[in-house]
Design a protein around this nucleic acid. Structure first.
Lengths: 207, 207
DNA sequence: GAATGTTCAGTGATAAAGTCACACAGAGCG
DNA sequence: CGCTCTGTGTGACTTTATCACTGAACATTC
């Protein structure tokens, strides 16, 4: 389904006009869409798949800031698009994704001519700001065991997931050893089973 | 000086039109502009003074997210303005401030009719997003002693500041005891002098 | 299939930061 | 002066981060 809801709200002529200039780009798992310092090519509209955005601190540690899925807009790019500054973060394709890349000129035109488009952009910005505020709160005040358990609970329905402790550490913005120890603790409590690169949920997680 | 640069870019008729509907609102130090959960009244344009935005976690701890000064735009409000959701944060006047409150209708009209206004809004959003990303990185990976020293260095030129350890803890999103201990350590090293509600800089800070 | 290299996981020691509990000091006030 | 309120100092303990190292699981090569 190669469409994006923010384009569907456009009046017919604008819509046809916009689509004619946009090719869906296909990216595979693991592909780095952009990295810290890259200039901005345009505004990415995610059609399907999942892209995660993470940043690496001066210390070398990384943390996942948020994810984008179908119908999402990479609002982070707008800032760069406007000011010409580079990104502070990097985006990595987590599940094979397709997206439209809206160039600066078209973006300006859509902003100028469609109130719905503007609304969509503003809403997306608001959501992103909100996400980041919640992340700040979580990182600053929540305990790591709670955060880890919460992260696991969200994905527990799948029964098992494929992820290394290092990757999990980046998700939470902590150290690999911390994740290893906490997971081991959960295994001792009989709530999951650990294997190399895999976590299997049992007991309280699945219920 | 009761003007705001984002309004100055408007074409003359729009500018006159906008200003006619806007009264500068005056707020004193300590006044709470809005708190978590409040509905959004409009888009605040800061004319002068300083407003700080902070949030309180479920744990009861707080952290300062960012500050707004002259010519700033409270972009956080746009999200609420659009979706009707309440704020997650609260805004407190730090230095007496005046601001314009742009109501929804006027905001929509300006977005519709002025490319410069749109540009200003987008830039502001971008900056805010960037600030929050940097904050996440700082909270997640930087050591508290470094963060405290950096915070102090920025204000050291004043020679002395009036602040309690508790307030400083909220600035950094940590506990009062941690701040007390780190400050005491700095005092032992001869870099500052502590008094009730006051920090006086000496030695390496002033140089 | 044995040797080798690479990635991933486990763990002890130690340092930094957060939490809890409480003592005490200065400021304001009846 | 004695009382209260707010701000500060500190010990004890828990949680998290960092460092250093070990061994296990998997992949590659001969």
């Amino acid at each position: 389904m190669l469409q994006h809801s923010i384009l569907e709200t456009l009046p017919e002529d604008l819509h046809r006009d916009a689509l004619s200039g946009l090719q869906p780009l296909r990216f595979e798992h693991g592909k780095v869409l952009f990295r810290a310092g890259d200039p901005c090519q345009g505004l990415p509209l995610v059609l399907n798949g999942i892209v995660k955005v993470q940043m690496t601190g001066l210390s070398g540690n990384s943390i996942v800031l948020y994810r984008m899925g179908a119908d999402d807009i990479c609002t982070l790019s707008i800032g760069c698009l406007m000011t010409g500054d580079g990104f502070r973060a990097e985006a990595v394709v987590e599940e094979d994704a397709e997206l439209f890349m809206v160039p600066r000129g078209l973006f300006d035109r859509l902003m100028d001519q469609s109130a719905d488009f503007r609304l969509g952009i503003m809403e997306s910005y608001g959501r992103r700001l909100n996400d980041l505020m919640l992340l700040v709160e979580e990182v600053a005040f929540r305990r790591m065991d709670e955060r880890l358990e919460h992260w696991l609970e969200v994905r527990a329905e799948k029964g098992a997931i494929t992820i290394t402790h290092q990757e999990l550490a980046v998700e939470l913005g902590t150290a690999r050893e911390v994740v290893s120890r906490l997971l081991k603790e959960l295994e001792r409590k009989g709530r999951l089973r650990l294997a190399r690169g895999k976590i299997e949920f049992i007991g309280s997680f699945v219920e």
